[in-house]
């Protein structure tokens, strides 16, 4: 109880003050819409939006490279990221009840698209192994989108000091720094490309990372405001499924499949020699 009261004091007021400053500046800049006109084409061109949350990260990177934020403030702020995600989850999940009819109709799609989260392996592992000639680091970096649950899996199975561990750490940091920016722009471009139905795009947003989901969902809702409620509900349902099944999906399907594909790509001999070297 004493510990509780001691920690409840706002001794970390600096962190929250920085946060307030970054938030206000980012919101004041506001959403910016960019349209790229393709010369010679008759269509409206590709448009994508930049959102306040993306400016926040950019401001953070600028402040950090100017060494403006003390190390201690950074360390304190780190666990607060996960804690502040919870409010967003309530907003997202509250759309499930009103849209229940739609969700039941889309049930099979919602459940099956969860397996799409394994798509990361098919795309990323060949590039890592064949283009960048990475070793076992490739397995750590490619089997998932490298968020906290995946870190826990790798730490448990291989240890974070292993090659697999250093692979996932690199990918984890990339995700923290660039994940939201990349997802926001990627979703904007896919909306502009007009190949997929917004329902399918919204379902795919639930990948297990709240901030990336929000970043990917924002441009879709922005482009189809009439469908906002349903799009929110699909993303939330998919996100809830992912956070429930993600760990088991990675453990039972993701890692075994990645290891198998890694052997195929490296050739049996090379993979065996590596394993022999490791032991």
């Amino acid at each position: 109880m004493k510990e509780f009261l001691e920690n409840l004091k706002l001794k970390d007021w600096k962190v929250h003050l920085w946060c307030l400053g970054i938030l206000v500046v980012s919101e004041l800049i506001g959403t910016m819409v960019f349209t790229i006109k393709l010369s010679g084409s008759e269509s409206a061109g590709i448009s994508f939006s930049l959102f306040p949350m993306l400016y926040a990260i950019v401001i953070g990177i600028i402040l950090a490279s100017m060494k403006k934020i003390p190390k201690q403030v950074m360390d304190t702020a780190s666990p607060y990221v996960g804690l502040s995600c919870m409010l967003l989850i309530t907003k997202m999940s509250s759309s499930i009840g009103p849209a229940w009819g739609d969700i039941v109709k889309a049930g099979p799609a919602l459940i099956l698209q969860e397996f799409g989260n394994l798509g990361t392996i098919v795309f990323a592992l060949p590039v890592a192994v064949l283009v960048f000639k990475m070793g076992r680091e490739a397995v750590g970096a490619s089997f998932s989108i490298s968020r906290e649950p995946s870190l826990a899996i790798i730490a448990d199975k291989y240890g974070l000091d292993s090659p697999e561990g250093s692979g996932i750490m690199g990918a984890y940091i990339t995700g923290t720094v660039l994940g939201t920016v990349f997802n926001g722009i990627m979703a904007s471009l896919l909306v502009a490309a007009n190949i997929f139905h917004p329902y399918a795009l919204a379902m795919a947003c639930g990948t297990g990372s709240s901030s990336m989901m929000a970043a990917a969902l924002a441009p879709i809702v922005e482009a189809f405001p009439d469908m906002a409620e349903t799009l929110n509900a699909y993303a939330a349902a998919s996100q809830t499924l992912s956070s429930a099944d993600g760990l088991y999906m990675s453990l039972l399907l993701g890692i075994p499949f990645t290891n198998w594909l890694y052997k195929v790509l490296k050739g049996k001999k090379a993979a065996k020699a590596e394993q022999g070297g490791a032991n």
Partner: peptide, 18 residues
């Protein structure tokens, strides 16, 4: 939805330098 994300990313922005 978006303003609910800004606090998260602002905390992330502070710790990103680490």
């Amino acid at each position: 939805l978006l303003p609910l994300c800004t606090p998260i990313l602002s905390y992330a922005a502070i710790s990103v330098g680490r």
